[in-house]
């Protein structure tokens, strides 16, 4: 089976009849474990819709999605393979948002440990896992801090740690560098590359950010709901 992300003929139509809008049209993507690809396109091109479909938040109209070697959606076989989409998102998909959206009333460790805890793991084990990730992302020294005490870059690193907490085969990053300056934005991309490689996670980075686009080895351009794959520059980040 295909590991990473494999999408075949994915379409999404909003509405019906004359007012129907095809947000995604026959999208095909294939991202290997450990690979980071960019998803680039203008506003309204379908990036967010694609992310929501991949994130099991909205149901596609047609197509097939395979995450981590497991078919999660197949329109020809009844749609979602599981009724518990919440558990699917929790266990198999990591999310990184434009703003870090850390839970303000949990400290850094518990923000990361929350996911394994939600998956039913013991508090102690979850916190050990969280600390490992924080160490890997070089924010372990802020483990007891509140999110409001962190800089923007630190917050984004914690949110990356949270996305990795349940070791998902896939991470969906929605403009993760938008609020950051060039230096920090590139640092985030470097971390994503490291984490993808270290944890063999396939990462899709939705972005408009001209600073980071040249760093991707592969880019999917999306326009009017259709994707076109192009090789990226794969520029090294110093």
């Amino acid at each position: 089976m295909d590991e990473g992300i494999h999408i075949e003929g994915l379409s999404k139509r909003y509405g019906a009849g004359d007012t129907a809008v095809d947000a995604l049209k026959d999208v095909n993507m294939r991202i290997a474990p450990g690979e980071v690809v960019g998803l680039v396109g203008p506003s309204g091109s379908g990036k967010t819709t694609l992310l929501k479909c991949l994130g099991a938040v909205i149901e596609p109209t047609r197509g097939r999605m395979i995450l981590g070697g497991e078919v999660i959606y197949d329109s020809e076989q009844g749609g979602w393979k599981t009724k518990d989409l919440r558990a699917l998102r929790r266990d198999r998909i990591g999310f990184i948002f434009q703003a870090p959206y850390l839970i303000p009333f949990l400290d850094v460790t518990d923000n990361v440990a929350l996911l394994p805890m939600l998956a039913g793991r013991a508090n102690g084990t979850s916190r050990v896992r969280a600390l490992e990730l924080l160490q890997a992302l070089d924010v372990a020294h802020r483990a007891k801090a509140q999110p409001s005490e962190l800089s923007g870059g630190e917050q984004q690193r914690v949110s990356i740690a949270r996305a990795l907490a349940n070791q998902p085969p896939v991470i969906l990053a929605d403009e993760p560098t938008a609020p950051l300056d060039s230096q920090r934005a590139l640092a985030v991309v470097r971390i994503l590359n490291q984490m993808a490689s270290q944890y063999q996670t396939a990462i899709i980075v939705v972005t408009h950010d001209e600073k980071i686009i040249p760093t991707f080895k592969r880019i999917y351009h999306i326009r009017d709901g259709r994707t076109v794959e192009e090789p990226g520059e794969g520029r090294e980040i110093s």
Partner: peptide, 16 residues
């Protein structure tokens, strides 16, 4: 509301 949306997205049950 935003934190609740994130909690739901990352798999927190309605019951929680």
């Amino acid at each position: 509301i935003r934190e609740i949306a994130v909690l739901k997205l990352i798999g927190t049950r309605n019951r929680t």
